[in-house]
């Protein structure tokens, strides 16, 4: 049953070596610290607009993107995209500057939190439109198929996006065209303030895969290794011509839909998740217990990440803002 959380075959450390484990940890830790710092900074009023934080969901981005290379593999993200960007190697300082609306940002301050992209790294953009990404991913997958370059395209969407026609149409098209595409439904339980239990008809996103003739599976999104294994199978299948798959990742977002959301629609799940399920804690416990990494090695990563984020914020705040001359550039290649 796709709605049953699958258990990783290798309960230890997924066959990753120490360097790869440190890398995965670094990705998740960077996302966590980045988002928690944004939570604090947003409260000061220095950050314009909306931000939608990914904290709590790190294992999903890291577990999926760890299989992808920057050159030929593509992801499309959601409005909650910082984690996907970091996991796809978008420059963290440029991301921070972008969120601050600075000229040095990933998008020169023209995109902001919801539109961070780096096509050179196969990051097709966070997306302000729920369900905006899956059709684009079909196209990226088509490009790889036409070129025969073995590339895979991955669509991240939420339980909200799972109910959009664009997503359902994309699942169908991916099957009809037999595309090297993977659909990752990050079900964090809420589309804005509306519960997935109420809005996802039938209760399971993964179960919908069967209707489109593709494998669908559900994994525990707090478990990096579980996500990694399920995503790995789907990505391998796509890469070797086996067509698309759907993976539903069940997780919890630690903050509101957007910063400022009072979250009166939910109760104690976040506290429980942070205390008992947290993906970083579980990762740390698992790899130190297995003896693959030491606490000191992980602590060193924590320090490294803390310094990076500190620098990113300091530099972003000091960076120049765009000027009037930037207003009407970059609309067209030629006009």
């Amino acid at each position: 049953m796709p709605d049953t959380l699958r258990t990783p075959r290798d309960p230890a450390t997924g066959g990753l070596d120490a360097a790869a484990l440190l890398d995965a940890y670094r990705t998740m830790r960077t996302i966590r610290v980045f988002e928690e710092r944004l939570h604090d900074e947003f409260a000061t009023g220095d950050i314009p607009g909306f931000v939608h934080l990914y904290a709590g969901e790190e294992a999903s981005a890291a577990g999926v993107c760890g299989w992808l290379d920057d050159e030929r593999d593509v992801i499309a993200s959601t409005h909650r995209g910082h984690g996907h960007c970091i996991a796809k190697h978008v420059d963290v300082k440029a991301m921070m500057a972008e969120i601050y609306g600075r000229a040095t940002g990933s998008c020169h301050g023209k995109g902001g939190s919801m539109h961070i992209a780096d096509l050179s790294r196969g990051m097709l953009g966070a997306n302000g439109i729920v369900g905006g990404g899956p059709p684009l991913v079909c196209g990226a997958a088509l490009a790889s198929k036409v070129r025969g370059d073995g590339g895979v395209a991955v669509a991240f969407f939420g339980d909200g996006g799972a109910n959009q026609g664009t997503t359902l149409e994309s699942l169908n098209l991916a099957t009809v065209w037999h595309l090297p595409a993977v659909f990752i439904a990050e079900n964090n339980g809420y589309a804005e303030a509306t519960a997935a239990e109420w809005s996802v008809g039938g209760g399971s996103v993964a179960a919908r895969a069967a209707a489109f003739g593709m494998p669908g599976t559900t994994v525990d999104g707090f478990d990096f290794f579980a996500v990694r294994e399920a995503a790995g199978e789907a990505i391998e299948r796509a890469r070797t011509g086996g067509g698309p798959s759907l993976v539903e990742v069940r997780l919890t977002r630690y903050y509101g839909h957007f910063e400022g959301d009072q979250q009166t629609y939910r109760t104690t799940e976040v506290q429980r998740a942070r205390a008992e399920l947290d993906c970083l804690l579980r990762f740390r416990t698992r790899v130190t217990a297995s003896g693959d990494l030491t606490a000191a090695q992980l602590d060193a990563v924590d320090e490294e990440v803390a310094a990076l984020i500190e620098e990113a914020v300091t530099e972003a705040k000091a960076a120049p803002l765009p000027t009037a001359a930037d207003l009407d550039t970059d609309v067209y290649v030629t006009y």
């Binding site: 096509l119 684009l136 079909c138 196209g139 990226a140 036409v146 590339g151 994309s170 098209l173 009809v176």
Partner: peptide
Amino acid sequence: PDRVLDTPISESAFIGAAIGAATRGLRP
């Protein structure tokens, strides 16, 4: 034969796919 594709009646998906493919080096 490999570069002319029929589509389902599914404009959101295939128009979006054309756009996504364009960002990845095709000229759909």
